[in-house]
């Protein structure tokens, strides 16, 4: 739709610049040259040799924020993706251990199964919001904590690999590994497929489809939805289900493509990093890909800067928080 806010441009600039500013200030604090820090951040995130790793990092962010952007369009503030990713990953690993030898079919089944588990987990706060009026921000936050404990129980108890001393599942059989497609990198099929599928899908669904408008009506509240003949309760549950499904898939791709097993640390805050991307994507879906890559690159780059300049690792939380705030001026549409 042609109506475009000038806020978008300023907002985008803020998102790009704010983390740089934060990094610079932090470097000054610890007596490191800000220019050098930013150099390492960009080198670590965006130099040609690092791009494959950045894409790898961007993939779960991209997949998760696709689902979230649909939920945010309906003003359903799902912030529970982190837990949904984790449970999706564990579910994938669990079913994958039973599907060894099935090859591609096994990969597809376990990916979808992971998605479904993420979706079911997300449906609980969805149901609470739809039928009990419970604020989904809280319930999803609580569900994140619960997911952590559940994962801890599963990975230390029933699902723990008999050969591992640590909380992790056994390694999947080799035929379920989604192997790197480009030699010398870890770029697998998921990393190549997600931008190709998800970026256009987001654009079409958010900006060019009737679904986008339906979701916006849901976001206007139950009464207005009913006026137009939408059952808001069902729609909220369905939206949560969908966003949880995609978060679960993001967990699956991490298991099948990278770790080949489930670990408690499978999601590196992707559930939180996806929030600013989704907030923006629900307004301007074309930005979902560049933003995911930018965030993935900055997060990777901060690690490299940390490695080269001995900056305390608390920096990465600061950057994430600042990115979240920075995405907000664009999202003000209440």
């Amino acid at each position: 739709m042609p109506a475009r806010s000038p806020r978008l441009v300023t907002g985008l600039l803020i998102v790009v610049l704010a983390p740089l500013l934060a990094i610079s200030i932090l470097s000054l604090f610890s007596g490191v040259n800000a220019v050098e820090t930013i150099y390492w951040v960009f080198w670590g995130g965006f130099s040609p040799t690092q791009i494959p790793e950045t894409m790898l990092r961007a993939t779960p962010i991209l997949i998760t924020s696709f689902g979230l952007s649909l939920a945010y369009l309906a003003r359903i503030w799902n912030i529970g993706s982190e837990g949904q990713i984790l449970l999706g990953a564990i579910a994938t690993a669990w079913i994958g251990l039973h599907l060894g030898g099935l090859g591609v079919i096994g990969v597809i089944v376990s990916t979808i199964f992971g998605g479904l588990c993420g979706a079911l987990w997300a449906s609980i706060p969805g149901l609470l919001r739809a039928y009990r009026g419970a604020n989904e921000v809280f319930s999803t936050l609580m569900m994140n904590y619960l997911a952590l404990y559940l994962a801890s129980y599963l990975l230390q108890g029933p699902l723990r690999s008999p050969t591992s001393l640590f909380p992790e599942t056994a390694t999947l059989s080799r035929d379920l590994w989604v192997e790197p497609l480009i030699p010398g990198t870890r770029v697998n099929a998921f990393v190549l497929l997600s931008p190709a599928l998800i970026a256009p899908a987001t654009y079409i669904l958010v900006a060019r489809s009737t679904l986008g408008i339906k979701l916006r009506v849901i976001g206007e509240g139950a009464e207005k939805a009913r006026y137009f003949g939408i059952d808001a309760g069902k729609a909220i549950v369905a939206t949560m289900f969908l966003s949880g499904f995609l978060a679960g898939i993001a967990g699956s791709t991490e298991v099948l493509g990278i770790h080949h097993r489930a670990l408690p640390s499978i999601s590196q805050g992707y559930g939180y990093l996806a929030i600013p991307v989704a907030v923006i994507a629900s307004l301007e879906p074309r930005l979902i890909l560049p933003l995911s890559i930018y965030l993935g690159g900055v997060v990777n780059g901060v690690e490299v800067a940390q490695m080269n300049l001995s900056i305390p690792s608390g920096a990465s939380y600061i950057i994430q928080g600042i990115l979240l705030i920075a995405s907000l001026p664009m999202a003000m549409r209440r």
């Binding site: 932090l26 604090f29 610890s30 503030w77 912030i79 921000v137 939180y272 929030i275 907030v279 305390p312 690792s313 608390g314 920096a315 990465s316 939380y317 600061i318 950057i319 994430q320 928080g321 600042i322 979240l324 705030i325 995405s327 907000l328 001026p329 999202a331 003000m332 209440r334």
Partner: peptide
Amino acid sequence: YMRLDQIVVGVSISMVSIGLTSYLYRL
């Protein structure tokens, strides 16, 4: 005053605080 989303601002401030306190503690 800037009327940004309360929940996201709150979560972000908390996130930045975790990072900043751990960062400054180290320094």
